[in-house]
Design a binder for these strands. Structure first.
Length: 468
RNA sequence: GCUCCCUUCGUCUAGCGGUCCAGGACGCGGCCCUCUCAAGGCUGAAACAUGGGUUCGAUUCCCAUAGGGAGCGCCA
């Protein structure tokens, strides 16, 4: 039997970070077993479903590289099929029409709660023969009511439920639109989904869905209910915990590989291994070893992972990504050194691509803004001589290469009777406008000879202009 | 209220009855390296929720309790 899994988000907003993990685990399971992965859009809630959400989901999935083999299938395209199945259930007697009004059902529940009972539909329309004129009925499942059912779950084990607690749920609404439970079950069965991997907020819904399947005589898939992702405070992940929309991570300069690596380690581990390539994840992943407990989202660890990926990433790829971010920030990459060189200079000191954009700005603008505080502190009269000597040496350098630049600066320091640090920091401020940059030789190499000379001249002018 | 799920350092986790005075990672502290910022190296503090069982022996199995979470809709 070929494994087939699916990811079935409802398009009522952006693609949530928790959704991405669910999709990832589902995708990994399919890929690990050489199976198929389906993307299905559960848009039966026409009030809340939007086309923008569908686009956001597709864009998010593409960004993280979770590719699907079938779909996206939309439930709204399958209404005829649901109606057909409902009709057959009505004929078989496994479902019935219920003419109770919403008010009637609500009153029933209120009375039950008042008596300290479980709010549940009491099945009063089960044996009704005649339709009620002027009322469009809903279709309800005739559920067992007695006995018990156990859900065989790959992460939670066997979970038993008492059928007495499960009432006759609605399959088709009075307007003919199928409910979530009905749509899911019919779709999974029709698509041949073998493994339903989803959030464990669905665990207690599962016995009801199995009842529908059994009424239909359809095979029951294997279930795996994933624990939820919580915010740092243990509450359900939401906007106030920071970014929850995947695409926000893209904006912030995270790499999809790092995000996926972070997500796969939430609830799953392979010994002490922290870094996983996509191929390793596929090879090693197994839902059965997923933790049953909820996990908290830890932005710091994600940041560390992203840094790891930037540190080790292929420079051409990173340069390409960096170009995208620079363009978005309005930085003209043509005004500076090759981005591959920028990546190499900054990969050890950046957590995100945005960090690189921010920190390397001085390479792409002219004139570079001079930080007041830094200038006041480092560009003093006493350093004017050494800076001038450095400029002289640098402009005549044979090759504008890191090593030669380093030698020149070292020589200036020696002849000025200064330590390397005493000349390095003023040079940095003069050339970058600030106090932080890669090693001074690397920095100067990136800035280039012309600009270095010009910026040193400007720094000397600045010093000269200061009152003694 | 009822049903179900969960519980190892602050966080993510390893551990599948003795290997554990509990290992790794993030974060945090210290030291080293150092032209800034980083990166890196070394190092330190930090956990088996509680109570009962089962067993020669429990972090590991069972049951309670406590604390979290989810579901109980003509939402998904």
């Amino acid at each position: 039997m070929t494994v087939k899994t699916r990811f079935a988000p409802s398009p009522t907003g952006y693609l949530h970070i928790g959704g991405v993990r669910t999709a990832l685990f589902s995708w990994l399971y399919a890929r690990h077993h050489g199976g198929r992965f389906v993307l299905r859009i559960e848009d039966t809630d026409r009030e809340r479903s939007t086309e923008e959400s569908i686009q956001a989901i597709l864009t998010g999935m593409e960004w993280v590289g979770l590719d699907w083999d079938e779909g996206p299938v939309r439930q709204t395209e399958r209404f005829a099929r649901y109606a057909e199945i409902a009709e057959s259930m009505l004929r078989a007697g496994t479902a019935y029409r219920c003419y109770c009004s919403r008010e009637e059902v609500e009153a029933m529940r209120a009375a039950q709660v008042a008596r300290g009972e479980n709010p549940r539909y009491d099945g009063r329309c089960r044996d009704r023969r005649a339709p009620v004129p002027g009322v469009s009925p809903v279709v309800r499942l005739r559920s067992p009511g007695t006995g018990s059912i156990t859900v065989h779950d790959l992460v939670h084990g066997d979970v038993p439920f008492d059928n007495a607690g499960l009432d006759d749920l609605i399959l088709v609404r009075s307007d003919g639109v199928p409910t979530f439970h009905f749509g899911v079950v019919v779709d999974d069965a029709d698509m041949g989904i073998t493994h339903v991997i989803r959030g464990d907020d669905h665990l207690t819904n599962t016995p009801r869905q199995i009842h529908i399947l059994q009424a239909l005589g359809m095979p029951v898939p294997v279930y795996a209910h994933l624990p939820m992702i919580l915010g740092a405070d243990g509450a359900r992940l939401s906007k106030r915990h920071g970014a929850v929309n995947v695409l926000e991570y893209r904006e912030q300069g995270y790499l999809p590989a790092a995000l996926l690596n972070y997500l796969v380690r939430l609830g799953w581990a392979h010994g002490d291994q922290e870094l996983f390539t996509r191929a390793e994840m596929i090879r090693l992943f197994d839902v059965a070893s997923v933790n049953a407990a909820a996990a908290r989202f830890n932005p710091e660890k994600l940041a560390w992972l992203n840094q790891q990926y930037i540190q080790r990433g292929e420079r051409g790829y990173l340069a390409g990504e960096l170009a995208t971010h620079m363009a978005r920030r309005g930085v003209d990459a043509r005004q500076g050194p090759p981005l591959a060189a920028v990546v190499d200079a900054y990969r050890e000191r950046a957590v995100t691509l945005e960090d690189i954009v921010q920190a390397s700005g001085y390479l792409f603008v002219e004139p570079v803004p001079l930080d007041e505080k830094a200038a006041r502190q480092h560009l003093k009269a006493a350093i004017a001589g050494p800076l001038a000597r450095a400029r002289e040496r640098l402009v005549v350098l044979g090759d504008w290469r890191r090593q030669d630049i380093h030698d020149a600066v070292t020589a200036v320091a020696a002849e000025s009777g200064l330590g390397f640090g005493k000349i390095g920091q003023p040079l940095r401020v003069a050339v970058t406008g600030g106090t932080v940059s890669p090693p001074i030789d690397v920095t100067l190499e990136l800035v280039g000879r012309e600009r270095t000379a010009a910026r040193l001249a400007r720094a000397l002018d600045y010093i000269a202009a200061q009152p003694a």
